[in-house]
Amino acid sequence: MNGHTGRELLAEAIRLRQQGNPEEARRRLLDLAAEHPGDAEVAYQTAWIHDVLGLEAEAVPFYEGSLRGTELAEEDRRGALLGLGSPYRILGRCAEAVTTLRQGAAEFPDDGALQTFLAMALFNTNQHHEAMQILLKLLATTSDDPYVRQYRRAIETYAQDLDDTVRAG
Rank of each mutant, 00 (worst) to 15 (best):
Leu91Phe: 03
Arg93Asn: 12
Pro87Gly: 02
Gln103Gly: 01
Ala97Gly: 11
Ala121Met: 08
Arg78Met: 09
Leu67Val: 02
Asp76Met: 03
Ile90Glu: 11
Ala121Trp: 11
Glu71Arg: 13
Ala106Leu: 11
Tyr88Phe: 15
Glu96Thr: 00
Leu122Thr: 00
Leu84Gly: 06
Leu84Pro: 05
Ala97Glu: 13
Leu72Val: 12
Leu114Gly: 00
Gln115Trp: 07
Met120Arg: 11
Asp111Asn: 15
Cys94His: 09
Asp111Val: 08
Cys94Trp: 03
Leu67Pro: 10
Gly83Ala: 04
Phe117Asn: 13
Ala113Met: 14
Asp110Ser: 12
Gly83Glu: 08
Pro61Asn: 12
Thr99Leu: 13
Arg78His: 09
Glu96Met: 01
Gly83Thr: 05
Leu82Asp: 05
Asp76Gly: 00
Arg89Val: 01
Thr99Gly: 08
Pro87Leu: 06
Thr116Tyr: 06
Arg77Asn: 07
Gly65Cys: 13
Tyr63Asn: 10
Ala95Asp: 14
Gly104Asp: 04
Val98Leu: 08
Gln103Thr: 08
Ser66Gln: 12
Asp76Cys: 01
Pro109Asp: 07
Ser86Trp: 13
Ser86Gln: 13
Leu118Pro: 04
Leu72Ile: 12
Ser66Tyr: 14
Pro61Arg: 13
Thr70Arg: 15
Thr100Glu: 07
Phe108Glu: 05
Gln115Gly: 14
Met120Thr: 13
Gln103Tyr: 04
Thr70Gln: 15
Gly65Tyr: 14
Gly69Met: 09
Gln103Asp: 08
Gly104Phe: 10
Tyr63Lys: 10
Ala106Cys: 03
Ile90Ser: 08
Glu107Val: 09
Arg78Pro: 05
Pro87Val: 11
Tyr88Cys: 09
Gly69Glu: 13
Leu118Cys: 12
Cys94Pro: 00
Gly92Trp: 09
Glu107His: 11
Pro109Ile: 05
Arg93Thr: 02
Gln115Met: 10
Glu74Asn: 02
Leu118Ser: 10
Phe108Ala: 04
Arg68Trp: 12
Ser86Arg: 14
Cys94Ile: 05
Gly112Cys: 01
Ala119Met: 07
Met120Asp: 15
Leu82Gln: 04
Gly69Val: 09
Ala119Asp: 06
Arg78Cys: 02
Arg78Gln: 10
Gly65Asp: 14
Glu75His: 04
Pro109Trp: 01
Leu82Met: 05
Gly85Ile: 02
Arg68Ile: 06
Ala80Gly: 06
Val98Ile: 07
